[in-house]
Design a protein around this nucleic acid. Structure first.
Lengths: 205, 205
DNA sequence: GCAAATTAATGATTTATTCAAG
DNA sequence: CTTGAATAAATCATTAATTTGC
């Protein structure tokens, strides 16, 4: 046991063992009733109060999470060191591949590309991707309406939202005579606060 | 980890952490521009497409809502099945100490007893303990409101959750004329599986 | 071996979120 | 838009483990 006049609860080994067993068995955030039961049970092994049990589960849960997260982060940092950043890979992912359509035509003779960007912008549709409907037939109508149909990408350098730090790719569209030059600007990473600001701006403005 | 040729996106831990951070920072339903920025940013950590980001935020928002709804449901069920015994006095620790006051009167001649359990129940105050204010004078208002003040303890003998094996202590409250008889029922110990069942019941029901 | 000094664990508090009800 | 309720995250504070110098 702790120092005689300890200011805090010192669980006995039995108490800790039982608590850990309970946690392992699935008790993660006991409710009031459960806390009562546990406290009663554990009081057999030594002085204990409900709040001790409450705190124990709070702390234990939090620290298990923390342990896990740290492990993952460590792993990740290892992965990261071995990682290349491929800007142009063979993925059906939106921005880069679509822009590449300017260089090589789309596999099927569909209308694909930027057209009537002004109208799209008015609708707030400044970016969408093509859903692979063969993969997701159950996608609902509103989804399709919102994101489906034509692929288009639009970047407005003068937009304050994009003057925030980020990576982005843009095209300098001059005329429709030929493929415009492709330019990739690499700035610094988007931060959550940047996005939040923009989000608020968009929601409130 | 993702299988090599997986047909669906497997977010890396780092990606998940960043997405969660963004969500917490206020990005709940990113618009197309934001999605693109996020995708570009996260592609540094691994393969990702805009639709992954879109779906992630959709799902995360929905699941957060769901989690909360379940929590609220659980809370309601608890309130319905539990009795609330509401005590007014300044005691340092909850259940047993309080009940023991029935045997030996509290150190100060204060009103002690059950009153307006329904009101307490309505507030969802199904478990709290008294902070020893003499030890912590700097405790703030919200804290006191949340945890402090009244102690309450609930025991419902008819509740199925409490017919599970446990030790518990209860009072048979008759009138407010005098201290009710104290009865301590000693059953058999709480097991982790019992508690887990109740936990699952609450979570899934 | 053994304390003082240092570090790691962990109990207890406070702060910051979350959602949706009012 | 504000608030309530719950709780996860961050932090503070104390106890245990350990390292260190003798």
């Amino acid at each position: 046991m702790c120092p005689a006049g300890s200011s805090r609860w010192c669980p006995t080994p039995e108490q800790v063992m039982i608590l850990e067993e309970m946690y392992r068995s699935g008790v993660k955030t006991p409710n009031a009733t459960q806390i009562q039961q546990i406290t009663s049970h554990l009081s057999f092994y030594g002085k204990i109060e409900g709040k001790n049990v409450f705190y124990w589960f709070q702390n234990h849960k939090a620290r298990e999470r923390q342990k896990l997260r740290r492990k993952l982060t460590k792993q990740l940092q290892l992965q990261q060191q071995q990682l290349f950043h491929h800007y142009f890979d063979s993925l059906p992912s939106p921005p880069f591949q679509h822009l590449s359509y300017y260089n090589s035509p789309p596999p099927f003779p569909q209308r694909v590309g930027v057209h009537d960007a002004a109208a799209a912008a008015k609708q707030g549709m400044n970016y969408t991707w093509k859903l692979d409907v063969s993969e997701r037939m159950d996608v609902d109508k509103s989804m399709m309406k919102m994101y489906g149909g034509d692929l288009l990408m639009m970047v407005d350098l003068s937009s304050p939202s994009l003057s925030s730090p980020c990576f982005f790719t843009t095209t300098t569209n001059t005329t429709t005579t030929g493929p415009p030059p492709l330019k990739t600007l690499e700035l610094f990473p988007v931060t959550a606060s940047n996005l939040k600001e923009e989000c608020n701006k968009n929601n409130n403005g």
